[in-house]
Write a protein that binds this DNA or RNA. Structure first.
Length: 187
DNA sequence: CCCTGATTCGC
DNA sequence: GCGAATCAGG
């Protein structure tokens, strides 16, 4: 594969959107994230901000030994997995929408015991959500469901997930509550 | 461990 | 110019 205009254009577009090098590489196909990063640098758009600034110098000095990354071929296994709440908490409002009234809801904190700050964060971030459909979800898109699945007004957050987790940072915030914050709250 | 971008340097 | 290997860090 080579860098024809179309590929370079897509690279620029995605990079501009803040997509990660590996995501771009996956999208382009036939290249690794290293190739993408290398190209990004050669194109001189390593700095996503674009202009002005120039510093951000990272004093990188000598190096030690660190046997880590090995040459490894690409291995991907898309798991179009339905949104599941494996966390200690579940988006109550969403669950209500898909579970008939009267049904016992799984053990979960009610909305009012979720960190208010985290909730506020979610409300903000939902505006920026990419609103992906089920089939558009990937291993790295936030699988937080929004809206009523029975209507057209249903989508998944779709923002970049936080390492490992199924959700973006904001949604991880409300989905994964620290045990300490929710332990034995009496009423 | 997973991931991120940055850099080097043989090709 | 290209990108694997490596580095540095989250």
């Amino acid at each position: 594969m080579s860098w024809n205009d179309e590929r370079v254009e897509l690279l620029k577009k995605m990079w501009g959107e803040g997509q990660s090098a590996s995501q771009i590489a996956k999208e382009l196909g036939g290249v690794t994230r290293n190739a993408v990063i290398g190209k990004v640098h050669r194109l001189g758009l390593s700095n996503r901000s674009g202009s002005g600034g120039s510093e951000s110098a990272k004093s990188k000095t000598a190096a030690k030994a660190k046997p880590a990354a090995r040459a490894k071929a690409a291995k991907a296994e898309p798991k179009t997995e339905a949104p599941k709440e494996t966390a200690t908490a579940t988006p109550v409002s969403r669950v209500k929408a898909i579970i008939p009234a009267g049904q016992p809801l799984p053990p979960q904190p009610s909305a009012n015991e979720i960190d208010p700050a985290a909730l506020a964060k979610v409300n903000e971030i939902e505006k920026k959500a990419k609103k992906l459909s089920l089939m558009e979800l990937t291993e790295r898109t936030c699988k937080w469901p929004v809206g009523d699945p029975a209507t057209d007004d249903f989508w998944f957050c779709g923002l970049p997930v936080q390492s490992g987790k199924p959700y973006c940072e904001a949604h991880v915030g409300v989905a994964f509550q620290p045990m300490s914050a929710r332990r034995d709250r009496r009423r």
